[in-house]
Design a protein around this nucleic acid. Structure first.
Lengths: 240, 240, 240, 240
DNA sequence: CATGAATGAGAGTTCATTCAT
DNA sequence: AATGAATGAACTCTCATTCAT
């Protein structure tokens, strides 16, 4: 699987991860399961609408049609449920629907496809990404979460870059890890600005999602000095 | 002045721009001037130590050796004084000590120097940058501030890129504005990760400031397809 | 049985007296009996560990390995189960293992033996006594319980004192009831300080249980002006 | 000063003592002083009426005619203000108005006077004593307070007893400290039962305050084997 | 200019108790 | 007889802001 495309924040993550708070027993009954799910769904909506800080527990419980007490049956705090919300989104970021990468595609094509997939997944979860950015800058627990996710991504892409170097398709002078970190940073920051901050600056011509894919891919290819896709090459990026 | 190197967040800014809150009369007396300055200085320290949210007004006034009431003589709110703190730092980010760029330096050399300068300035104000990131994700007023600063930078670098293209020194297929945005994003995000978040990830080899300069410059040069610095060229980047 | 020795708090009690709360049907089945017993045992442990106020019902049910709902099958409230716990301890306080008091023992010897027995029983149930002290100062229902227990004791000892006076072995000027009340108060308060509060005051020489028996007995004998045990006398204190 | 009379709980206390909680700055202005005093007075009333546990902060602030916020200007918690309430009562317990003890009074007379004074002071502060008993059994901080006060008293009386022994006026076989502890325990417990718990037991003849003085004094004199007051003696108890 | 006491809405959190299953 | 999810009133404590002095 090609995953040179990146973004630093999310999308890769160990199976079990988010638990910034004191634990609560998982629901024992069907009904409990439903209530918990309702709370998580409600929380996501409320967080997205109000932001993390302005969201009050009572907003969440009201949206989930239950009492405050019930909230504490399943979560120990606001952080706790926020982590749960993130965890759900994880699923989606993890399987961004890797598109058809023919085995004979050029490295450039692979990069493009993977960038496009990343951006799509980011878009789907844009509000949540913004939320995470918010919280990560406030709560060390979530900052760490963001960092570790990002690192996983960076490492993966670093491996891909190294492979390209070995095959003579990428600038051998680049440190793969550093390069990966820089390029992933570019990607994620761009996505953030595009999908989250999007202040719809009047002075700037509108940029489409596809514009972003194109420019990033181009810069990426250039930066790594990947040979132009004109000469057909064996796939330079192979994943795991 | 060479400023192709960039970063989106800070370092460029119209003379006076920060005033997200209700105004207060500027101090009329000498004494008032001193008190106000003491408050701003105290606020910076407190914000840096406690973060924006956890800093209480009382912490600031205590550090400034004055009463709560006095605070409101000069500032209308926490946001207001935070803006004032930022404004002070502005000075420094505005004059990052642009280094000696000989007029016959290669574009690559110029980029490197400018990147180095940016990083230095960022480092000096790292805590504040972190604070801004925190607040911008919380308060729209400050989000806008960040955006507009960033845009100024991006535009400037876009002009430089365009010039390089005209002179045949940069990939003509790149949209200058988009490329600038992407590369500036890379820079600023990297600086943030390096100087602010620096979670000192145990698994990663230590990266020095200079490592960062080198990798970024390299990627930047590659990405724009700037000809290798071997052939002496006229300075490709000219400022203002 | 000699019970002039005393203490006002516990050790005497009508067969069944504790029921400060709404009743619940006693268990009908074998299984129910076991569950109820488990709850009482668990409650005692939890109360002793956490104190009455900090003990949550959930702590008790968890320790008893049953659900919250089940608790209410057997008890109507926290008070209710606390009363049940006390009732169990009653058994022990009621039969403090009255030692061999030869019928020709001197009054002093009888007093000593009985004081020793009281102290032993108190020690065995020290934690519970502390608990009762806690709750009696909070809940009128239990205050009454404590009072009535204490009174029973006081009355008994008053009878003994009166007998001694009749036989010319005790200061006839003393009101038997008042004297009994005072001496019992001394005893119980001392036991409380020794076994429950025992702040292990650094400045005070360690006092053994036996020291306590000796001093109390001596003071008691003196206070009642009981003739020195040198001259053999018929037992001055006869019980029931 | 004669202070063989006792009571274990309060009345003696080092200059500065009660601070079970986080400190608050003392009021800087006249007005602040008044507000703080109003809060303490209100707290005392509320505690006495409702008991420590049932007293809500809001009850206190309402009674003091101020807002919750104001409460926290002067006190950090319920405990904190309770300590302040106790501290005020201290004054009174400390100077129980030691009565005229003619220098040629017999030891018995001195004891009687001192017991009477103790009981009077206890009566004046009965509600508070009850409160302290309540809280001391709940909060270790206050338990310690009670213990240390009590100890001071016990030690003082122990010294008096020792002096009497030296002069040949008290049973030399008694350990002064243990005896003091026991007799003080008797006194304080009796006072507690009489003034605080006074369940007005229907079955018991009414006991007047003076009855208590008489019986306690008599028992005390007997217990220490102090010679009958008939033979005029030089004052056996001298203080400090 | 400076002070600092007063404000008070509002948040998070707990836990005994109920009740449908 | 047993379960455990649901309840919700009640409480403490915070802190930006105002205002009388």
């Amino acid at each position: 699987m090609a995953n040179i495309a990146a973004g630093d924040d999310h999308a890769d993550t160990p199976p079990s991860m988010v638990r910034p708070s004191l634990p609560r027993e998982p629901p024992a009954t069907e009904r409990g399961l439903r209530t918990r799910a309702a709370l998580v769904a409600a929380a996501r909506k409320v967080f997205e609408r109000l932001g993390y800080l302005d969201a009050r527990l009572i907003d969440i419980t009201r949206a989930a049609n239950c009492s405050t007490g019930t909230f504490y049956t399943y979560f120990s705090s606001k952080e706790d449920i926020f982590a749960a919300v993130l965890e759900v989104a994880q699923e989606d970021m993890l399987h961004p629907g890797m598109p058809h990468v023919a085995s004979d595609d050029s490295p450039a094509a692979v990069i493009e496809a993977s960038n496009r997939a990343y951006l799509k997944a980011y878009k789907r979860n844009a509000k949540l990404m913004g939320l995470l950015e918010q919280v990560a800058n406030i709560d060390p627990e979530f900052r760490e979460l963001r960092t570790s996710r990002s690192n996983a991504f960076v490492r993966r892409n670093a491996r891909s870059i190294a492979k390209l170097q070995v095959k003579g398709y990428a600038d051998p002078d680049l440190d793969p890890l550093l390069a990966s970190r820089a390029l992933s940073a570019m990607m994620s920051r761009l996505a953030f600005g595009h999908f989250v901050a999007r202040e719809d600056r009047e002075d700037t011509p509108t940029v489409t999602d596809e514009d972003l894919v194109q420019i990033v891919t181009r810069l990426w290819v250039n930066a790594l000095r990947i040979p132009s896709p004109d000469h057909r090459n064996p796939p330079a990026v192979q994943d795991q």
